[in-house]
Design a binder for these strands. Structure first.
Lengths: 164, 164
DNA sequence: TATTGTTATACTCTATAACTATA
DNA sequence: TATAGTTATAGAGTATAACAATA
């Protein structure tokens, strides 16, 4: 089987399984990405957060709203520019981030159960080279942009009508 | 970086790039999966096709409608059970399938440009073992089921109101 | 009564444009 | 005039229920 098909297939499977493990924490994969990014760069604006994660501003608002409502993220007015917020993790947010880390390690172990330690290292090395050559941002899941094709509406002829 | 994150990241990238290469043919990834499945088992019913590809019947109808409208797929009444259609590729459908194959090989070469021949074989071997251990169907992309978490509507407080 | 294909509908995510407050 | 954040809305994809024809 072609490596790129296997990558797409296992990658989608990995993303789904990770989302399943995250669900009991009440978090989605975008939530985890947001908490991780804020944890790595406290004070980030929504603008730059959205750019880093390739999440549209209009969607980011809703995601941050929810994380703020649940007390994991805090929006502070920037003293330099009153248009922007500085995003910070609360204590609960930091605990959530740690839980995400534990979840990720469990997920990793389960997904790579077929491989021993040195094989996992070999796999990571190969994947890292591909990621670099393809110009992928380290630590940033690209999400899934719009990609379908544009097609005209089809004229339907029914199975809900007698055929004989 | 953890292998499972790299897998999800590169997998999503691979899926997007493949969709981009398919777009000039006027096809989406599900279209390609459908043509491939019908090509491998001519006469398949929509029911079994949907099961194999994990596409819901209500969506499959629309996809097959469009492929039939474009003359790539033909629905023939089953002589044994008047409820079902037998799905077949037309000549144009077979040509489309060949074009998809060429596209997939180009995609594969581009995605794995960082690796030489023996490294690609090594990668495929590792990935195949993971796919088997994880119980993934050979040749079937799992798509992306519903996985977000359920959250109550948030009470918004606006940046569109004066803050001072 | 169960099944195949189909339609209708709801919810989520992606995407774009327009809007408010501020620079 | 441009920018950060927000709102509204349109377009896909996912999911469920209900329906007609047939088994």
């Amino acid at each position: 089987m072609s490596p790129s098909f296997l990558l797409a297939q296992i990658g989608a499977h990995a993303a789904m399984k990770f989302a399943e493990r995250l669900a009991p924490l009440g978090l989605s994969p975008p939530d985890a990405g947001i908490l991780r990014a804020i944890g790595a760069s406290a004070g980030l604006s929504q603008k730059r957060l959205g750019e880093r994660l390739s999440i549209l501003p209009s969607r980011l608002v809703v995601l941050v709203d929810e994380l703020e409502r649940r007390g994991l993220v805090e929006r502070r007015d920037s003293p330099e520019d009153r248009r922007v917020y500085e995003l910070h993790l609360t204590d609960a947010g930091r605990r959530a981030l740690e839980a995400i880390g534990r979840t990720a390690r469990q997920h990793d172990a389960a997904l790579c159960a077929a491989l021993d330690e040195s094989e996992r290292a070999e796999l990571s090395a190969l994947l890292t080279r591909i990621a670099e050559e393809q110009g992928l941002e380290p630590g940033v899941h690209p999400g899934f942009k719009r990609l379908g094709k544009t097609a005209q509406p089809a004229t339907r002829r029914g199975k809900t009508e007698p055929r004989a």
